[in-house]
Amino acid sequence: MATAKKVSAIKNTPKHLLGIQNLSVLEAKEILTEAKSFIKLNRGSSKKLDVLRGKTQINLFFEPSTRTQSSFDLAGKRLGADVMTMNMGNSALKKGETLIDTAMTLNAMHPDIIVIRHQDSGAPNLLSQKVNCTVINAGDGRREHPTQALLDALTIINRKDSVEGLKIAICGDILHSRVARSNIYLMNMLGAEVNVIAPKTLMPTGIDNLGVKSFTDMKKGLDGCDIVMMLRLQNERMQGSFLPSKREYYEFFGLTPEKLKFAKKDALLMHPGPMNRGVEIDTKLADDINVSLVKEQVELGVAVRMACLKLYCK
């Protein structure tokens, strides 16, 4: 019997990873399967492959980032690509150059992949229309952060074997969070039930239509949950007063060991980082290796980004 030829769900070059919204279930699952194979490699002593040898990857970061930027940096290098990271915070933009001009300049250098992080929603979409290489979204405004959601899914799968049938709570500043949006789409797609918990002023309009149940009470929202994802309070995106005080926020929405008890007994805790200890999360809980998956998220982030780079840069 002839074995069926393996067909990739991710076709056509250049193909872009702009958001989970544009992914099919098959594509998402393919990325996760590919990523699994890199976990072992990353834990081994020789971490270098030559899958992307000869390819050029540009990390274009318009917003400060530590973990996402270093994660993409490492991922590219481990696959053998030539990686250049550009921090645009104090560069061309301040001289009045537009995103498109920057893109065209870089495009002229024939990169194979551009990884972009930008403060404006939709910036990667705009970029993808103007360059002829693969564009990977590393977070745009409050819209999407697809690789974060994928690494969260991989972390869950690594512990619980599957996302399907799980109950996942996402708590905190949903309004300003691209991580929340991408996770809502992906976890739904993979068959989980998603609750979002936030004070009313940090809950976006029409969130229920995205396929979640929304709560303003941690006790109700966490009830029966397998996974608790905490989000950072994004003070830098807040204009005006959304909350009375951090103290009041911590009282009602900060995750403490007591509040975690509302979830399932074996519930696990996740956080995309960076954490505001004592604001959205109790500091001891954040470091509790029996409960917290935070370090694992960072570790698997590299594997997921390697998978994305490999699959999208063919």
């Binding site: 919204q21 929603s121 939709g122 745009d140 405004g141 819209r143 949006r181 976006p204 029409g206 969130i207």
Partner: peptide, 22 residues
Amino acid sequence: YELARNSCINQSEVATRLGLQG
């Protein structure tokens, strides 16, 4: 002005999906 600050689209599910200030 205060209610419309930084907005560029109607406040709605569309704004939530596009990640834009409504």
